[in-house]
Amino acid sequence: MDRADEVDKSGQNLSVTLHPSGRDDMSILSMQRLNDQYVPLPLNLPNGPSSPVDMAVDYFTYDYEFAEPPRVTSLQNTVPLPTFTDFGDDTYFVADQRGYESVVHHLAGQYLNADKSGNIADARLKLNKVDHITSDAMIFSVRKDELIKHAIIMVVVREISYSSTGVTVKTEDNSTYQADYVMVSASLGVLQSDLIEFKPQLPSWKILAIYQFDMAVYTKIFVKFPKKFWPEGAGREFFLYASTRRGYYGVWQEFEKQYPDANVLLVTVTDEESRRIEQQPDSQTKAEIMEVVRSMFPDEDVPDATDILVPRWWSDRFFRGSFSNWPIGVSRYEYDQLRAPVGRVYFTGEHTSERYNGYVHGAYLAGIDSAEILINCAQKKMCKYNVGGKHG
């Protein structure tokens, strides 16, 4: 762990010396090779660490944060990580009994009408347009004469038609919405899928920008047991499993502090393991987990798990992944293209946040930035969006 921290610090020092254009960017794995992290890496370990312990440490250091391995992740744009630089590298688990959505409701209550109980009851907010609530695309429908009273429509959007005079949005329940402008906050994974059809088709530069970024898959699997058999106490919230297979149920977390006596463990998997697990029944996943925990604690009486929760973000057509990761070869030029509007169609989301992509605060701040760009056009007639040069 100490050696991994040393190499990461060396990578940070190297990263800040690279040209701002991104022309000298490299993968995190390339940086590791330069530091000769895993002796003798340059000769017989070209793809990174291969021993179980080295893989576990490497996975915990990088994959656990970016959801993809060092060989594909940009050094210049992720090391040092802007979120940790700006806000500190302490991480916390949200255990609020109201659920994480309470944050969303609080923000929405600042500009949408609510009833006496504080529940959002704004007639302009369209929910439950199909059998269940979805959030694949949030459309900010802004009319020139209602810039303050903007409508927010959350439905299953299937088609966005745009012209020089306006925008028409069609949804899965055959509803049609017309507006002067539209803001699309569908995830990068959804934009890379065929869920939403744009008419006319988005220009090639926009499609290429969308496809160049990675939509990573990050899966937190919760497993409940009838009793505890794992270590507890200060400094023991996390523990790693060193498998001969990289990322195989490697990072574990216990919740005695957050949820006393809940007897729940969280194991995180990413990338290819996430995709593999999503395609198999939960019973098989639970069987694999039981084999792992019993090998981790051979001297303990490990009971069978009583329940398991396996999210499937990659398989869900409304997400197609968990969050974006900045891959090698993509610069801020492509990020400007990703956020850039196409006519009257504007884009936002965590993947359009140049500094905080992959995070909720990135999505929040990107929404503010994108709204200002749209309002400047609709209200102030300042509609030109500049994309800097590739190597400027």
Rank of each mutant, 00 (worst) to 15 (best):
K286Q: 15
F255D: 00
T285V: 14
E256N: 08
S187L: 10
K224C: 08
F239R: 06
R294T: 10
S204E: 11
S243T: 02
R276K: 14
F255Y: 12
Y241W: 02
D180S: 09
K206V: 11
K170C: 12
P226Q: 07
Q201N: 14
K220G: 01
N174E: 10
I221S: 00
Y177W: 15
Y181Q: 03
F229V: 07
V267D: 00
G235E: 05
N263Y: 14
A287Q: 11
P281H: 12
V182P: 02
Y211W: 06
E232L: 13
Y211A: 09
K224S: 14
K227I: 12
A216G: 09
S175V: 00
K227N: 12
Q178I: 07
L191A: 01
D214A: 11
T219C: 06
D180G: 11
T165E: 03
F213D: 02
I210G: 08
D271A: 09
E197V: 12
L208I: 08
A216F: 14
K286L: 15
D173Q: 13
S187D: 07
K227T: 15
P231E: 14
Q192E: 03
A234L: 10
I289V: 09
E232D: 11
Q258D: 05
D214G: 06
Y218K: 09
G233N: 05
S185P: 07
S274G: 03
T219P: 03
P203L: 03
I289P: 06
R246D: 12
G250H: 07
L202A: 13
I207V: 15
V190L: 07
F225L: 06
A209T: 09
L240I: 01
K257E: 10
L265P: 02
R245Y: 13
T285D: 01
I289Y: 01
G233R: 06
D282G: 05
A262R: 09
E232W: 00
F238T: 07
V269K: 05
T268M: 10
D282H: 07
F229R: 03
Q212F: 03
K206F: 09
P200I: 04
E291M: 06
P200W: 00
P281R: 12
N174L: 05
D194F: 14
V264P: 04
S295M: 01
V169Q: 04
V267A: 00
F239Q: 13
F213Y: 08
D261K: 13
T268H: 07
G235C: 06
D180L: 02
Q280Y: 03
S187F: 09
L208F: 08
Q178D: 00
F238G: 00
T285H: 04
F225K: 04
